[in-house]
């Protein structure tokens, strides 16, 4: 019985794969060129890198909602682990070599995050990648026993976690007078995007680190 079911699932999956691939091969070309539309508006976007322009200017509300989703996910994790909180004290046992490496690498990683943030305006890079590097530094510090897992974040940490979204929201509300959500005045666009990206880097870095640090060090059950 079970093997018949498996066979059915495999067959259905093969049919689905075949249909989807045929659809992709048959699909007519787009009648509207998005890259051309992006290129035409690059001059008013305030940045020189097209991906950053799409991410924070042309489709800024996607990014705004994404940060909200991330914060919600973190809140969900906090709620799920808190209900049966049973933390192991401290982090992992500190291996001295790992600890020294983490101490050496952390300032470099922060520097790299700053570079990525700054580079985002004119070449690949930006808030997400910079935040990922910051979160990596936090994970490394935790694994080398120099940063405890988060059991209940303090006020400052909570502010840091929500700060990016709050600044982004405040700017969006302030710019509503422009007639559309998140339409920046072209002469300030570069500065506004840098402000949003800088606050997002810190908040996203903390949130991504939080995804790991709120779960880390818990016993399997809790």
């Amino acid at each position: 019985m079970k093997s018949a079911l498996r066979l059915a699932v495999v067959l259905l999956a093969l049919v689905l794969a075949g249909t989807l691939m045929a659809a992709i091969l048959e699909l007519p070309g787009a009648n509207q060129s998005l890259p051309a539309a992006v290129a035409a508006h690059m001059a008013v976007s305030g940045v020189e890198h097209p991906v950053t322009a799409v991410l924070l200017n042309f489709r800024g509300y996607d990014t705004l909602l994404e940060v909200a989703v991330l914060l919600l996910a973190l809140l969900g994790i906090g709620a799920a682990v808190h209900a049966g909180s049973e933390t192991e004290d401290g982090g992992a046992e500190g291996d001295p070599v790992l600890a020294a490496l983490a101490r050496l690498l952390t300032p470099l990683l922060i520097l790299a995050a700053g570079y990525l943030l700054w580079a985002g305006a004119h070449r690949p890079g930006g808030a997400f990648q910079a935040a990922a590097v910051l979160a990596g530094a936090a994970v490394l510090l935790h694994l080398s026993g120099q940063m405890p897992a988060w059991s209940s974040p303090g006020l400052l940490l909570r502010l840091g976690l929500a700060g990016g979204l709050l600044i982004f929201l405040a700017l969006a509300a302030g710019l509503l007078g422009q007639g559309a959500l998140l339409r920046y005045p072209p002469e300030y666009a570069g500065a506004l995007i840098l402000l949003i990206e800088a606050s997002l880097t810190i908040s996203l870095g903390l949130i991504l680190a939080g995804l790991f640090l709120m779960l880390a060090g818990r016993r399997g059950g809790a």
Partner: peptide
């Protein structure tokens, strides 16, 4: 650049979903 920017947000949302799923599974086990 348009789908690239969307996938970039998608990757970050995917890691958040993974972490939430892991937290829920652990809670379930408990």
């Amino acid at each position: 650049p348009v789908p690239q920017a969307m996938v970039l947000t998608g990757i970050v949302v995917a890691v958040a979903a993974t972490a939430l799923a892991l937290a829920l599974v652990r809670r379930l086990h408990g």
